[in-house]
Design a protein around this nucleic acid. Structure first.
Lengths: 260, 260
DNA sequence: CACCTTCTATCATTCAGTGATAGTTACTAT
DNA sequence: ATAGTAACTATCACTGAATGATAGAAGGTG
């Protein structure tokens, strides 16, 4: 096994060491979220930098509650998570307000539309409505993706300044899906452009051949409470054609913002 | 304020008072799960029988982590829950194994099929594949429903004995969706019948007009790791027609059991 | 302006979480 | 069989983090 080199995990274990117990439990859950298969107790302990005994207590407690399940190969997330997610989808104001509007948007444009929110340094897809012919790449609800690629830039552009600077400071240069490099300076410039124009048209940034048009959903504080986008492929649509749908998506974004 | 009198909540806060912190945090989450709208801090404190100060610390911590979100009307579950759920769906052995088999089952029968597991005294729908014409009542993934109505009885029948007796002891008599009464004795008799025959055909138990045929998914320990069922309505299908599909659903249940 | 509610902040006490260690079970290899 | 290894469980003294009573700030309402 690859062994060490994992203690550098910058888990957001927050301010100092208050609220340790709960934070550690959430670290364990999120460690299992990142895992692509069952984890042994010792693996969880290593990944989340906890003492084995502490890990054991925490994990067993989460197992008792159904948040983690155990099989012969180790521990993984449990079905109770699904109940919570169901409650979220049913109750969440943003989701419930956006759903019919996205449905209408997808009906009128024929494209897949989606809604996502910022969560730390990532964005989470909260809702999606497929277009007439669904994309072969099904972007799954609940999936986390980086903020600095594709539509996430809109959330970044409208985020609070201190967070943004922190984010950029620690961010290494990345490459887009089509191979183009994206330096911190590129990103800064693009964020400024987004703030000015109010939208972002992304071509092959996160996914090769993907084309998306993203608009912020205005929140009460003037920032972006979320963002919505229309997604298609470079094969089916030209950037100009997609950009022509800006009024449509803007109307939808405004409608959602007005109802939250 | 009314103060006391709330300590009677039978929350599964488990063995004595060890692991308090985490258990309380989960209580808070599940209290928000049950709520059908945003809850104020004081409401959460009351619902989960916690001191206001404790509630505040816990809630704020969960907010910081994205498990809870706050708006003008109070607190509700946050989008990070969705990420966890996504990871569960993608990784869960049972779900991934069952999905294609349920798809095949629905294709060959034309009916909606679903997979659910036991969680405490409820069952949770883990996967569902719609039939040719989806039911008007869309049973949502992640939803919790009682164990003693409809297909849940199968999980109850194959559960461990001590749990079962506990369950029956505290259970009040209930009424089925069509008005029939179901006493504890009725239930015991039915569970025995299920254990013998290995299936359960439910008519208008949980939902009026619903008709379902349920089979356990055998686990390694001889018990039921889960259960799958075919769902239709009394309008479209007769009980006899549905029962004729027993070989089909049995084959599917066996196939799932063999692969976990 | 007084009143109420919601949320936040402070702080001494103590009890629950911590982590080192030892024990149990189960599997693999020789 | 037997030793060896890994995974998980159990125990326990110490301590520091969670607790909860109380006071305070912020925001709204009649």
């Amino acid at each position: 096994m690859e062994g060490l080199g994992t203690a550098s995990m910058g888990a957001p274990t927050g301010s100092g060491n208050q609220g340790r117990t709960l934070d550690r439990a959430l670290d364990v859950l999120e460690c299992l979220e990142r895992a692509r298969g069952p984890l042994r107790l010792s693996e969880i302990a290593r990944e989340s930098a906890l003492h084995l005994a502490t890990t054991q207590r925490t994990v067993n407690q989460l197992v008792r509650r159904g948040y983690i399940q155990q099989d012969g190969l180790g521990y993984s997330l449990g079905p109770v998570i699904l109940s919570l997610a169901h409650a979220f989808v049913v109750n969440d104001r943003l989701s419930t307000v956006a759903s019919p509007i996205l449905t209408e948007l997808s009906a009128s444009t024929g494209l897949t539309s989606s809604l996502f929110v910022r969560s730390g340094r990532e964005r989470i897809l909260v809702a999606r409505v497929d277009g007439v012919n669904p994309l072969r790449y099904q972007f799954p609800i609940g999936r986390r993706v980086p903020l600095d690629l594709g539509g996430g830039k809109v959330l970044l552009a409208y985020g609070e300044d201190p967070e943004l600077d922190d984010y950029l400071a620690e961010r290494p240069d990345v490459h887009l899906a089509d191979g183009r490099a994206q330096t911190v300076e590129d990103l800064r410039a693009e964020l400024a452009r987004i703030r000015e124009s109010g939208y972002h048209l992304a071509e092959s940034e996160r996914e090769l051949g993907a084309l998306s048009l993203t608009r912020p959903v205005p929140g009460h504080d003037g920032g972006a409470a979320a963002a919505i986008n229309l997604v298609t492929t470079t094969e089916k649509t030209t950037p100009e054609e997609l950009l022509a749908l800006l009024p449509e998506i803007s109307r939808a974004a405004g409608a959602i913002g007005a109802r939250i």
